[in-house]
Design a protein around this nucleic acid. Structure first.
Length: 775
DNA sequence: AAAAACATAATTTTT
DNA sequence: TTATGTTTTT
């Protein structure tokens, strides 16, 4: 029992108490994952069949990591037969095998957010409802709430309070929309994310024999991140656990950051009420971070009213203070961070993979990508536009979806005329209207085109095109029976004309689209190999589709475990740790987000988010904020985040020297420090990133522009230059040859030139970026 | 029916 | 700024 060594008292108790309900309150960095994995290992060594263990996590990443760690202790084969995964993936799997109970086919499609949005748009259009009042996204969010609280369409209409509330909100059509949306999903043979949980609940409540089956199978249940479960998930767990009550939930109320999607913090706060005999173990020692970091995080989180009392502490070194950097712009902020990473990499022998840049919103990534690229620092962006959300990838996937589930009209409308094959909107509408009038699925019309053709009111040319298209799909389907996923997908990509169409576009974006298709095909091959190796693996197309529908964190699996800086949102960083963390964009209205600053509850969640971010750091943490940043196409001034002022000043240290002096004089943060806001447009503030970190940023504001006669061409790296003056003939990479007619600006870094090009006409260029060469 | 031109809305976080 | 949607042109 090697694995039990080195656990502290609380951890030992959490690992070895196998019977009965158990709640583990695990502070940040207290070895939660370790406890969970050891506990599972302990269950198995004590004779529990892995097949009877269900472990639920929140992200695929967490599931994967835990599985690997368990495999190290108990061996591959036992680890594999565990039921471990996200709520969504585990229950999707169960729903597939029990789908017939609910009138679904086992090959139902899983709709991601984008698919759901498309369906919703269609619903609103079909009902001739004003999409300005009923914004599809908003309506979808509302329906999502209902689903997560198990309010079905019928329940909705039977609930006067809800009806009234929606009526008051000027949303009285919500019910109708809800009904139609659910209906459309059903007819498409599709479930959205919320359905996976809702339908599981339905399955377990309506069919006692199914409930009994899974209760008996899952004799030991473990739930990670319990504070982030929503009502729907809570009920599933409760139902499954009610027979044996061997349920272990692990969580930290201070890290609850998903209430926006229905997470209910009371699930963890009320665990004791559900299971009066429950044992509680608190893990309070943080092994991850320095004392300074832990203490600073504690101070901030203590501002929240709603929480368990906990005493998280660290016995590690005190460590360095948190460094705060005030920047002038988003670009400046990014340059600081990349310069800082560069320096620490060189002076402290830190690997690039030791660094994380954490931000509140995905849109903040761009500046950092630019800055890191400039310094040739390798990085990887997590989340954001995931690979599988790219248009070209979704297009090819839509073809494959149709092969698995013909009724998926969402996929059908995506590809029926893409690449263009002369089946336009009018034709498609006629098809749909006709199918509806006959009360049959569109696919049935296509299946029997010869029979229906006379009634369709389409000319023979179009009928032939439709027939060809559908014959092609049918041929793919036949092929799928004998050939493997990769070969079929390759054939689809070729025969559909998708690749040919994409190859016509020789712009860099076009080329990368082709590469993405290639990448998707490669990942299929990888998938097949993986599934074949595993005993009981399933290399089918539907299994592949399910895997990608439920994983947002998939890039492409190649460039793994290399030495790269990690860029991600704070939400994504949960559960991870990094020696050095840069927490950026600490500004009011950005973090805390302007969308979440109105109520105390919302603000407390933002604060927990801050807590999560800071406690990712092991050794060093840096905070940065910008005095103004470029967003919505405009420069917006911003004030430092309130969270900055909530960190006790004894834990932090300003990097900008002037700031430090002022900060010490003023322990509050609303001092004049933050008042000096630049009033000049952005390009006056661009600066040379070669200067040292300590430079002071009170660059003299650029005054009124005066025309000037000569200027230097400065390339973006700030080096080599060449004199240029009005009248010179110059060459531009894209615009070709032209003549300089006007020069503008005083700051040598920001000269603008007016150039008349032979082919392109007059352009205003900023010399720094334009890369002109004199000829 | 397809492409191009034009207009306008949007950026919170994820399974 | 970008992404998306709508209208106009070919």
């Amino acid at each position: 029992m090697d694995y039990l060594k080195g656990l502290n008292e609380a951890q030992f108790e959490a690992v070895t108490t196998l019977q009965g309900p158990l709640m583990v309150l695990a502070g940040a960095g207290s070895g939660k994952t370790r406890v969970l994995t050891m506990r599972i290992a302990h269950l198995i060594t004590n004779g529990v069949d892995p097949f009877n263990i269900l472990a639920l996590t929140f992200t695929n990443k967490a599931a994967k990591e835990m599985k690997e760690r368990i495999a190290k202790v108990v061996g591959d084969s036992d680890a594999r037969s565990l039921w471990m995964g996200t709520f969504h993936s585990v229950f999707a799997r169960i729903l597939r095998s029990e789908a017939h109970y609910l009138g679904f086919s086992s090959n139902f499609t899983i709709y991601d957010a984008q698919d759901a949005l498309n369906v919703m748009k269609k619903v609103i259009k079909d009902l001739s409802i004003d999409a300005e009042v009923y914004k599809p996204k908003k309506v979808l969010a509302r329906i999502s709430q209902y689903k997560n609280n198990l309010i079905t369409v019928n329940a909705y209409f039977n609930n006067p309070e809800l009806l009234e509330a929606d009526e008051r909100a000027n949303m009285k059509m919500i019910g109708e929309i809800y009904r139609k949306y659910v209906d459309m999903c059903f007819r498409n043979g599709a479930m959205d994310f919320d359905d996976l949980l809702l339908k599981t609940n339905e399955l377990l409540t309506r069919f006692p024999e199914v409930l009994a089956k899974y209760q008996d199978r899952f004799r030991y249940i473990l739930v990670d991140e319990y504070q982030d479960t929503n009502h729907s998930q809570y009920l599933i767990v409760k139902a499954l656990a009610s027979k044996f009550e061997n349920i272990c939930v692990v969580g930290d109320d201070a890290q609850s950051i998903y209430s926006f999607r229905g997470a209910n913090i009371y699930n963890i706060l009320n665990f004791k009420k559900d299971y009066p005999d429950a044992m509680t173990v608190s893990l309070e020692q943080n092994y991850r971070s320095t004392q300074n970091i832990v203490d600073a995080a504690n101070v901030v989180i203590s501002k929240n009213l709603q929480q368990f009392k906990k005493n998280v502490f660290s016995e590690n070194e005190v460590g360095e203070k948190i460094k705060v950097y005030r920047s002038l712009s988003d670009a400046d902020e990014a340059n600081f961070v990349s310069a800082n990473i560069f320096e620490l990499h060189n002076t402290q022998q830190r690997k690039f993979s030791d660094f994380a840049i954490l931000y509140r919103t995905n849109s903040q990534t761009r500046a950092f990508e630019d800055a890191l690229r400039k310094k040739n620092i390798p990085y990887r962006v997590y989340g954001g536009l995931s690979f599988y959300q790219r248009k070209e990838v979704k297009d090819l996937l839509a073809y494959l979806r149709i092969l698995v589930n013909e009724n998926d009209s969402e996929a059908l409308s995506r590809i029926i005329n893409y690449p263009a094959r002369g089946i336009g909107e009018t034709t498609q509408n006629k098809l749909i209207v006709f199918a509806d009038s006959q009360n049959v699925p569109v696919t049935q019309v296509l299946d029997n085109l010869g029979f229906y053709a006379p009634q369709l009111g389409l000319n023979n040319g179009i009928i032939t095109k439709l027939g060809d298209f559908w014959a092609m799909i049918k041929a793919f389907q036949v092929m799928l029976k004998t050939e493997n996923v990769y070969d079929v997908a390759m054939e689809v990509a070729k025969r559909s004309g998708l690749i040919r169409f994409l190859k016509e576009d020789q712009t860099p974006e076009g080329i990368s689209r082709v590469e993405n298709i290639q990448e998707l095909l490669n990942s299929m091959q990888g998938f097949i190999e993986e599934q074949i190796q595993v005993e009981g693996g399933d290399p089918s197309l539907s299994n592949f589709m399910e895997n990608i529908a439920l994983s947002a964190d998939t890039q492409s699996n190649k460039d793994d475990d290399t030495d790269k800086v990690s860029l991600m949102t704070i939400h994504l960083s949960k559960g991870l740790e990094f020696p050095v963390v840069h927490l950026v964009g600490l500004e009011e209205n950005l973090f805390p987000s302007f969308m979440s600053s109105s109520t105390r509850e919302e603000l407390e969640e933002e604060r927990r988010l801050f807590y999560v971010a800071l406690t990712r750091a092991e050794k060093q943490a840096f905070f940065t904020y910008a005095v103004s940043r470029f967003q919505w196409g405009k420069i917006t001034d911003s004030e430092p985040s309130r969270f900055l002022s909530e960190v006790d000043s004894k834990y932090i240290e300003f990097i900008n020297p002037m700031m430090e002096a002022r900060f010490v004089n003023n322990s509050g943060v609303n001092s004049n420090i933050f008042d000096e806001r630049p009033s000049e447009p952005r390009f006056f503030k661009k600066k040379d990133e070669k200067k040292t970190l300590e430079r002071n940023f009170n660059t003299p504001p650029a005054k009124k522009l005066k025309p000037i006669a000569t200027a230097k061409i400065i390339n973006p790296s700030g080096s080599s230059s060449e004199d240029i003056e009005v009248g010179d003939r110059v060459r531009h990479d894209r615009f070709g040859v032209g003549e300089v007619t006007f020069l503008d600006g005083t700051d040598p870094q920001n000269i603008k030139a007016k150039v008349i090009f032979a082919n392109e006409g007059e352009k205003n260029l900023i010399l720094k970026f334009a890369k002109l060469t004199k000829i």
